[in-house]
Simulated assay, not measured.
Amino acid sequence: MEVKSSPYYYSLALLFILNLIGTDSLWASPYFQSGDSIESRREVIEFDESLIEAYQADEAYNYFKNVREESAWEKFKHWLSLQWNRFLEWLLSGISEGNFWNYMALVLKILLILGLGLLIAWLFNKYYVVSQKSPPADQSELNLSEDERLIQQKDLSTLIEEAESEGNYRLASRYLFLNILKHLKDYNFIEYQFQKTNTDYKSEITQQDIRSDFSYASRFYEFVWYGDFKLGVTDFKAAKMRFENLIRNIHNSKTHG
């Protein structure tokens, strides 16, 4: 009886043969030789130390910089520079456009700055420089070294009347103010000392109304005496009335000390 071979069996046989051939070839490959491994093929890479040192010395690769805190003076300079730049930006704004009105605005800004500068200089000269002037050395007037002797006298009223009758209202104002200091001393409102200032005396007066009147009297006296102010009869009589009213208030107050 003849047995016919099925194509299916031929295919299986062929696949089996090819499989055997392929497996032997794979194991025969040099990549899978005995004793071969990843560790046996590892290569050690060495870095150039000079190259590492060069990177370490380069500030661009320094990620651990210590930021130094600015001093108060440096902060002030930075703030001042910022304000100056803002001022220039305000002053020169619009000039690059070449517009006529922008140039007019620049001129007005400059005039405004000059006006403010002159005003500050005038105020400084009026209220500071004048107060620092020494009294003029006039033989008809008294030196500051004589203040204490005058305050100890009892005839200041006579000196006031003499100066007023001669029309020397500036000198009469000086006697009036020294008379106020005399009464403040006698009634223990102040402790008179030649080296003290009027501000020192004002701080010693505890009674509010007397301290307020003394503040006016001291300002008037300093303005007239040290400021070389030409005092007229009307202004003198108005000041004299306030000075005498202050002396009456001192008398009517309770004795201090």
Rank of each mutant, 00 (worst) to 15 (best):
E69R: 07
L26M: 10
F124H: 09
D213G: 04
K185R: 08
S29V: 12
P7F: 10
N125A: 14
S253D: 13
L176W: 00
K237W: 12
L18D: 05
A238G: 01
E74S: 14
F47Y: 12
D36R: 09
V67E: 12
R211I: 08
A121N: 03
F189V: 01
L171H: 01
A121D: 05
F47L: 15
H256C: 09
Q56H: 08
L150S: 00
E161H: 05
L18K: 00
Y31K: 01
E70G: 00
Y169Q: 01
L88F: 12
E39H: 05
R42F: 14
V3F: 11
W122T: 08
I45M: 10
E222L: 11
Q193T: 00
Q132L: 15
L118K: 06
E49G: 09
K254H: 13
T255P: 02
K133H: 11
R174F: 06
F194L: 06
E146C: 08
S25M: 11
A217E: 00
Y221W: 12
L159G: 00
L26T: 01
N168W: 00
S157H: 11
N198H: 14
R68V: 11
D200V: 06
S157T: 14
R170S: 14
I17Y: 02
S5T: 11
Q153M: 13
A72I: 12
L91A: 05
E146I: 10
I205S: 04
S134L: 10
E141G: 00
N19M: 14
K196S: 15
L91Y: 05
L156V: 06
F236C: 01
Q208Y: 03
D228N: 15
S29D: 15
D213H: 04
E39S: 11
E191T: 14
I110K: 02
G232E: 11
D24R: 07
A72S: 06
V3N: 10
F100T: 10
L108H: 07
S25V: 09
L144T: 11
W90G: 01
T199H: 06
T23A: 05
E161M: 05
Y103V: 04
E162N: 10
L176N: 05
T23N: 00
S165D: 13
F16T: 14
R174A: 02
Y9I: 12
Y128T: 10
L159K: 14
L108S: 09
E166H: 10
T234C: 01
L20W: 07
N85L: 13
L118F: 13
Q139V: 14
Q208D: 07
S25N: 03
I110G: 02
V130W: 02
G257W: 12
V3A: 10
A217C: 02
L114V: 15
Y127S: 04
Q139F: 12
T255Q: 08
Y128L: 12
F223I: 05
V3D: 04
S11P: 00
W122S: 07
I120Q: 01
G22E: 09
L20N: 04
P135A: 13
